[in-house]
């Protein structure tokens, strides 16, 4: 397929002697929304973190946007500009305001002028519904607001791939909705998204494809309808029985 954004072949990743990813292969098309589910310790977050090389891999290849991430000569900093990432614990910069958090990358990397960056930040804050919080420091924001700023921040470099690492897992239940709704808006823009989550409802609603991971393997994958309603693998059936 010519329009594959991410191609992963035979990916292997270990922490010391513990092999957490055992031969993972998959392809993600442009504009596709892939949701990864699975029990804790299944390797799903590690897999996501390999996609922008926050984890160094031990074997296999990962090609993102035509760039081979495993190539030692690849300019990883440049490739990462194109891949936004949202973390479970937000990781906002506490010494910067919401707006400064968003403007930091474009200004540091000199991809925008000060004016352009401000305009972009205002636009993004509006997009996530936080225009009134531009000058607030992270400590003054609720969990849901922090995560929405974090999403805005990762969009500031105009990435065309977004990775979400359990974006709602650290939130109080009443704040999950506001973050998911921002993510749903993002789906509508045609963004290529890879989302690790426990929100099965979100997976069903917006996922083009769901990967079920367990024990370092992709055990089963398919459309939400197929995987959630008619899973074939016993481990998938077992997992879904527990979470649904």
């Amino acid at each position: 397929m010519a329009n594959n954004k991410i191609v992963v072949k035979n990916l292997i990743k270990s922490f010391g002697k513990l092999e957490v990813l055992k031969d993972i292969s998959t392809e993600i098309a442009e504009g596709e929304v892939v949701v990864i589910i699975g029990p804790s310790g299944s390797g799903k977050s590690t897999f996501l973190r390999c996609l922008n090389r926050l984890e160094e891999i031990n074997g296999g290849t990962i090609i993102v946007d035509g760039y081979n991430l495993t190539d030692k000569k690849a300019d990883i900093n440049k490739i990462r500009r194109n891949i936004g990432m949202v973390f479970q614990h937000f990781n906002l910069f506490p010494h910067k305001t919401a707006k400064e958090n968003i403007m930091l990358a474009p200004l540091t990397l000199k991809t925008m002028s000060k004016q352009e960056a401000e305009k972009k930040a205002d636009e993004l804050l509006r997009q996530v519904g936080l225009s009134d919080k531009a000058d607030a420091y992270p400590a003054q924001l609720s969990g849901g607001q922090k995560q929405r700023v974090a999403i805005a921040r990762s969009l500031a470099m105009n990435p065309d791939i977004m990775l979400f690492d359990e974006p709602t897992s650290a939130l109080d239940p009443e704040m999950v909705g506001e973050v998911l709704s921002v993510m749903k808006d993002l789906v509508k823009t045609g963004m290529t998204m890879v989302v690790v989550t426990h929100e099965i409802g979100f997976a069903r609603e917006v996922g083009d494809r769901i990967l079920f991971m367990d024990g370092g393997y992709i055990v089963e994958e398919g459309t939400p309808d197929k995987l959630l309603n008619n899973p074939c693998e016993p481990r998938t059936i077992d997992f879904l029985a527990k979470v649904l």
Binding site: L54, N77, M85, H89, N91, P94, L109
Partner: peptide, 30 residues
């Protein structure tokens, strides 16, 4: 400084040095 700070900065495309200077050291000095 929480190690998520370095990860967030690097994931935005900042180099190790840029992340150190802009994100990690200001918080470390604080």
């Amino acid at each position: 400084v929480d190690k998520g700070q370095m990860e967030a900065a690097r994931s935005l495309g900042l180099s190790y040095g840029q992340a150190m200077i802009k994100i990690i050291l200001p918080q470390a000095f604080r």
